[in-house]
Amino acid sequence: YETDHQDYCEVCQQGGEIILCDTCPRAYHLVCLDPELEKAPEGKWSCPHCEKE
C-alpha cells in the first residue's frame, strides 16, 4: 500500500524502526521523542508537532 509518510525520523533524519504520525506525514524513532516511548503506541497516534496544534 502506498503512503506519503517520510521514511526517516523527523528529529535525527535517520531511517530504521520509526513510528508514523496518524495526522501528518512525519515519522519518529521512539527514542527521539521527548519524552521517549518504550514501545509503539497502540491505535491512533499524533506526533508532538500535531499535539501542539
Rank of each mutant, 00 (worst) to 15 (best):
R26Q: 14
E38D: 10
K39P: 08
Y1N: 04
K39H: 11
T23E: 11
C12I: 00
A40R: 09
C9A: 01
C24N: 00
E38T: 05
C12V: 01
P25M: 06
T3N: 03
A40E: 04
V11C: 14
C21A: 02
P35W: 03
E2I: 15
G16C: 04
C24E: 00
K44A: 05
H49W: 01
G16N: 15
H5F: 07
E2H: 11
L20V: 11
Y8F: 05
P35G: 14
W45T: 03
C21M: 01
K52R: 07
S46R: 07
A27T: 12
P35N: 05
C21T: 00
C32Q: 00
C50S: 03
P35A: 06
I19R: 13
G43F: 07
Q6V: 06
T23W: 03
A27F: 10
P41D: 08
I18E: 03
S46G: 10
Q13F: 04
C50L: 02
V31C: 04
P35C: 04
C12E: 01
G15C: 11
Y8M: 13
G43A: 06
Y1S: 02
V31N: 06
D4C: 13
K39I: 09
C47V: 01
D7Y: 01
C12T: 01
Y8W: 07
R26K: 12
C32W: 00
H49S: 04
Q6Y: 03
A40W: 03
E17M: 12
T3I: 15
E53A: 05
D7V: 12
K44C: 09
W45P: 08
E38I: 04
E17L: 08
H49Y: 09
C24H: 03
G43S: 12
D7N: 07
S46Y: 04
C47P: 00
C9W: 00
D22G: 09
H49E: 05
D4A: 14
T3E: 15
K44S: 07
Y1V: 13
S46M: 04
W45C: 13
T3R: 13
P41T: 06
C24S: 01
K52V: 04
E53C: 14
S46W: 07
E42T: 10
E2N: 15
W45I: 07
I18R: 11
E2C: 15
E42A: 07
L30G: 12
E36L: 08
P41I: 13
K44H: 03
Y28S: 08
H49M: 05
Y28A: 08
H49R: 04
E10K: 14
L20S: 14
D34G: 06
C32P: 00
I19N: 13
D22T: 14
S46V: 10
C32K: 00
K44V: 07
D7Q: 14
L20Y: 14
K44R: 13
L37Y: 05
G16Y: 14
